[in-house]
Design a protein around this nucleic acid. Structure first.
Length: 430
RNA sequence: GGAGAGGUGGCCGAGUGGCCGAAGGCAACGGUUUGCUAAACCGUCGUAGGGACAAAAUCUCUACCGAGGGUUCAAAUCCCUCCCUCUCCGCCA
């Protein structure tokens, strides 16, 4: 969400900066409602002032034991007038508020211009894709052959875009989760949290999933709860309606959660395998910083996510998303893409974003600058998050990059302690 | 799910119709005193919106006592609905 005052005075500037991203915003309506809101507010406040004065006069007369009927009669009806104007004001504010919540964040100056993924810019690569002698098999073939991935039974018990992991597959997923959490808490300074995976409407609005993207979410039938599409939602909202002290910043959390996405509109994409599921596991990194620190934090956080891939010896690259490819709430996003031999390309495995004050404003997360002086006015924090990493896709990358000509899969060194010393996944009869 | 109690500023807590944005305490911040610490004393100390000013400082108005409605000239205070917390009962991993 944007600063309402800034939005009112600079809607043209915002509109130009957003370009394509702001296409579906009814800018004229926003402008008119903003003006109307100001006029109605002034009117309500004047009427209230009058009422207050009148009521004080009644009170004064009563105390002085003087007749107050005339003063009371004069105020009669004023209350109704106020109610009428307030009704109009409330309607304007509701409409304006809803529209304002649907305006995306402004891209940072360093974000490249572009309308889709082709405008993204690669900024670095790590590792070298191995040249296999035989054609690389896709992970679902490897996994099904080894008896550790079962899509048929997943479809039976749930439906398309679900998976069952079993045996060493389930074990490796669990190993990855533990390894990631241990690294982030032990070496990178994050506090582990295990939040609810269902949240209310306010939380979803705070991080920007609502009101605009309700069709992407799973919602419960009998309660107004949603399944989280990412741990970003519950973890960022931990501090909703709070004022943090500057000394406590930066606040860094890591959380493992399952994530639930309807994937509406993605029919035909990645229909096979683990890449795009309705339910998947993710370890998330979330940070709250002072505004002048958020961009250095973005680099740090991205580096923390990268370190997992480096330790797993998985080749990857980092790209800066162009304005048109960024998510709704982000001001700047780095995607980390891992090499998938079967596809001969890099695929997203982490997305690290700085939201600046966009989410903080929606969720009302502030901090009080240190220094003690009276100029210590509260200010919105900056929020960031990134996957560290998407667990299922990491499993995919391991299966594909560590596949052997005999169909087995070698387990990366750092995971072996988490898998009881296992060094290789060979055929596992069910 | 049933019964009861309660939600007031960063925290605790007073306040049953007007003089209440709200006593008092704690915490915090500034200062005096002090060899240091502590104590004592003095002072400051909510958030948001509108207007005035080129802007900052400042001034001014309005709103906010869980949320939303109602009664009244006037609501933290009375009434209704909802949300949340706590206690007991039921159910339950």
């Amino acid at each position: 969400m944007h600063d309402p005052k800034y939005l009112r005075d600079n809607s043209n500037l915002i509109r130009t900066s957003l370009g394509m991203r702001g296409q579906d915003v009814p800018w004229d309506v926003v402008q008119n409602l903003g003006d109307e809101r100001r006029i109605l507010t002034t009117e309500v406040e004047q009427l209230r002032h009058e009422l207050k004065k009148g009521s004080d006069e009644v009170a004064r007369l009563r105390r002085a034991k003087e007749p107050a009927e005339q003063a009371m009669a004069a105020m009669k009806g004023l209350g109704d007038r106020i109610k009428n104007v307030e009704d109009s004001l409330r309607k304007v504010e509701e409409t304006l508020g809803d529209l304002a919540l649907r305006i995306p964040n402004l891209p940072h100056q360093t974000v490249p211009v572009g309308s889709d993924a082709s405008g993204n810019i690669e900024i670095r690569r790590w590792g070298t894709p191995s040249s296999l002698t035989v054609p690389a098999k896709p992970h679902w073939e490897i996994g099904e052959a080894l008896g550790i991935l079962d899509f048929d039974r997943a479809a039976k018990i749930a439906g398309a875009r679900f998976a069952v992991l079993s045996g060493a597959g389930a074990r490796m997923e669990r190993a990855l989760i533990n390894y990631m959490l241990d690294l982030h808490t032990g070496s990178h300074g994050y506090r582990e949290v295990l939040p609810p995976v269902m949240v209310n409407r306010k939380a979803m609005t705070g991080t920007g999933q609502l009101p605009k993207f309700e069709e992407d979410l799973f919602r419960l039938r009998d309660e107004d709860y949603f399944l989280i599409p990412t741990a970003e939602v519950p973890v960022t909202n931990l501090h909703r309606e709070e004022i943090l002290s500057e000394d406590s910043l930066p606040v860094r959390y890591t959380a493992y959660t399952p994530c639930f996405r309807r994937e509406a509109g993605s029919y035909g994409k990645d229909t096979r395998g683990l890449i795009r599921l309705h339910q998947f596991n993710k370890v998330e990194l979330v940070a709250f910083t002072a505004p002048d620190r958020s961009y250095e934090e973005l680099e740090r956080l991205t580096g923390h996510a990268e370190s997992i891939l480096q330790n797993l010896r998985l080749p990857y690259r980092v790209v800066t998303l162009c304005a048109g490819d960024m998510g709704f709430s982000a001001a700047k996003t780095y995607d980390i893409e891992v090499w998938l031999p079967s596809q001969g390309q890099y695929r997203e495995i982490s997305s690290c974003s700085n939201f600046e004050s966009f989410q903080a404003r929606r969720a009302n997360i502030k901090y009080r600058p240190a220094g003690g002086k009276k100029d210590a006015k509260t200010e919105f924090v900056h929020t960031l998050n990134g996957s560290g990493l998407a667990v299922g896709r990491t499993l995919v990358a391991i299966l594909e990059n560590y596949q052997q000509p005999d169909g087995s899969v070698v387990i990366p060194d750092v995971l072996r302690p988490y898998m009881g010393g296992m060094e290789r996944i060979a055929l596992q009869p069910a």
